[in-house]
C-alpha cells in the first residue's frame, strides 16, 4: 500500500465509519487524497452516499502497523494458553447464585 506514494492521485488513506453513535468504528475501504481535508471529503463522497453515519475517520495507510500474517500464529499464541481467564473454567457449586 505504501508504494502508492508516487501515484499522481496522492497517497492512500484507510477509511473507517461509525454507523450510529455508540457502536464501534468499522473499516469501510480506502481513498486517495493529498491531505487530511481532501481525504475526509473523498471518504464522505465515496463511503457515505447513503445512510448518514455518525462518524468518519481517515488514517494514512502508510501509518498503520499490522502483524505480519506469517507471524500471526506464534504472535497470538498466548491468547490460548490461559484457560483460567474464562469464567467457564471455574466450577460453581449447586445452590450458589448470581455469581
Amino acid at each position: 500500500m505504501a508504494s502508492n506514494h508516487t501515484d499522481s492521485q496522492g497517497p492512500v488513506w484507510e477509511v473507517f465509519t461509525q454507523k450510529k453513535s455508540g457502536v464501534p468504528y468499522q473499516h469501510a475501504g480506502s481513498v486517495h487524497a493529498f491531505d487530511k481535508d481532501m481525504a475526509l471529503e473523498n471518504a464522505r463522497d465515496l463511503y457515505t452516499r447513503r445512510d448518514k453515519p455518525s462518524g468518519l475517520w481517515v488514517v494514512p495507510a502508510a501509518e498503520i502497523v499490522a502483524v505480519d500474517p506469517g507471524e500471526a500464529a506464534p504472535f497470538f499464541d498466548p491468547a490460548d494458553d490461559k484457560v483460567y481467564r474464562h469464567p467457564t473454567f471455574y466450577e460453581v457449586p449447586a445452590g450458589v447464585e448470581n455469581l
Binding site: 500500500m1 508504494s3 501515484d7 499522481s8 475501504g29 486517495h32 463522497d45 465515496l46 452516499r49
Partner: peptide, 23 residues
C-alpha cells in the same frame, strides 16, 4: 451514474492492495 463511479473506486482500491497502483 455517481454510484457506478463509486463502484469503480471501490474496485480500484481492492486491486491496489495487491501491489498495483491506480496509475
Amino acid at each position: 451514474i455517481q454510484d457506478e463511479g463509486g463502484h469503480g473506486l471501490y474496485l480500484y482500491s481492492a486491486a491496489e492492495t495487491l501491489g498495483i497502483s491506480r496509475d
